[in-house]
Design a protein around this nucleic acid. Structure first.
Lengths: 272, 272
DNA sequence: ACCTGAACACCGTTCAAGT
DNA sequence: ACCTGAACACCGTTCAAGT
């Protein structure tokens, strides 16, 4: 079984709130906000983070300020500090929430009875779905300093590391190979997905395209780059999806060799 | 607290007269502009960008503000706008300058007469050297939106794309294979190097390690992650350099197959 | 020609105060 | 218990003014 610790209400919300200032001992039930109608009022850490994600998706990362997020939630900026210690931690929370979406992804969470390769495939596709769903957030997922050196982007969660390693070890990988596989897998996902989302983003980003402006710069002098010019059509093709599949297949193939032969494939291996 | 709040001006040079009442009688001392000897005065776009890189390397990306960079150069922030249109373009210039260091790298710039594999090796190592020399800048190299979709991080320069494609095509690659190779190579470099620099950075970043604080969170409850705990030593090893070599070798091996057999290697190939 | 001072709009964050 | 108003220190950027 490979899913990260299956059922037990591993919900990312509630609990795990280390910063609640002091109170907390309250005998009464608390019930933090959320009146019957679950109306737009009743702030809540989860709602704040969710709003931040929506806001970034819609307006871009640079547009997110405490004040604007407050306004988006119909509240003054200062009210947010009740749910989040500051802006940096808001961003940390955003990254965590986005990654936590993986836990709700049924395609990833399937009982992983189809072997480690199937599991790694589904996990990779789950992460890719998240990256494509939140292209403005993914650079944050990619670059926020991880909590520990072995919690790597883009998985970023102890639970996924645990589940990844267990899956491989249960399938016969040595501990060292499982760790090496985890590293190679992270690096593949990170590089590929970061490039894919940034390629997506560039289609909108050109900001101010100067119009007429006759004698203007006109980008660059392309005559010095004849090959680039000649291959422009090829270079502009977006084959991200196919490349992702291919690189993933290749990685799995390499890991298979490690598992079967207990060694790392080398440069000449592919000869017959 | 975050960031180096070192309030008292981080100015490296002497007192730039913060608020001395009015002394300064000597009218002769000033010398504000560039004297013959190209002294430390005499601002200049290149000097501004160079200072920005030094500043980021030393204080971190978040610490870089127009005002602080001005102070670092012994000048008011507003003076910088003569050389750079604004903060965003400053950062673009920083990224460009850092990547341009590759052009001065003799190890990369060798006549590429030892074949395409040797060239790709040297180029990759050159980029890695830059990433490790400027770990605080590299995330910027990785995430700034590229000028065109086919100018990909971390190379980010038309000249390198041109040179990369020429090298492969001259060696017999088809145009399509050369482009595919360029994509795979970018993705490998980006993923690997971004992870490597962030792993480096984490060693310093732990910010405020709370000391005693008996009942505190103490990071997380590790008992739910027995495999991670058991493999902690393995997971903490930094094998970045070896992994880089290995992944690079593997990529070159794949490309070799494409070149020789005109096709993409598939999952079963490594069988005898 | 190059830099500064003052000003503007906007930030993150604190804290006392409202309800 | 939860939110606001006012305030503080700092930002990016503009523009007229100094030299």
């Amino acid at each position: 079984m490979t899913g990260p610790d299956t059922r037990p209400d591993t919900r990312p919300d509630e609990d795990a709130d280390p910063d609640s200032p002091e109170g907390r001992g309250g005998a009464a039930v608390v019930i933090p906000a959320a009146p019957p109608g679950s109306g737009r009022t009743g702030l809540d850490r989860r709602r704040v983070l969710g709003a931040a994600i929506e806001f970034i998706d819609a307006e871009g990362l640079n547009a997110l300020t405490m004040r604007r997020l407050g306004a988006y939630l119909g509240v003054e900026a200062m009210a947010l500090y009740r749910y989040v210690p500051g802006r940096e931690q808001l961003l940390d929370g955003v990254v965590e929430s986005v990654i936590d979406e993986l836990y709700g992804d049924p395609d990833v969470h399937l009982a992983a009875s189809h072997g480690w390769q199937d599991y790694l495939q589904r996990l990779a596709h789950g992460v890719r779905r998240i990256a494509l769903a939140h292209p403005e957030v993914f650079p944050l997922v990619a670059t926020r300093p991880p909590a520990a050196p072995w919690v790597r982007p883009p998985l970023r969660s102890l639970r996924w590391v645990e589940s990844f390693l267990d899956a491989l070890i249960d399938s016969g990988f040595s501990e060292a190979s499982a760790v090496a596989a985890y590293r190679a897998y992270s690096s593949f996902l990170l590089g590929h997905l970061l490039l894919e989302v940034s390629q997506k983003g560039v289609k909108i980003s050109p900001e101010d395209q100067p119009e007429g402006v006759p004698g203007a710069v006109a980008t660059t002098d392309l005559s010095e780059y004849p090959t680039v010019v000649r291959l422009e059509a090829l270079l502009s093709l977006d084959e991200s999806a196919a490349e992702f599949e291919e690189a993933l297949e290749n990685l799995l193939g390499r890991l298979e060799v490690v598992l079967r032969e207990g060694r790392t494939p080398r440069r000449g291996d592919t000869r017959g």
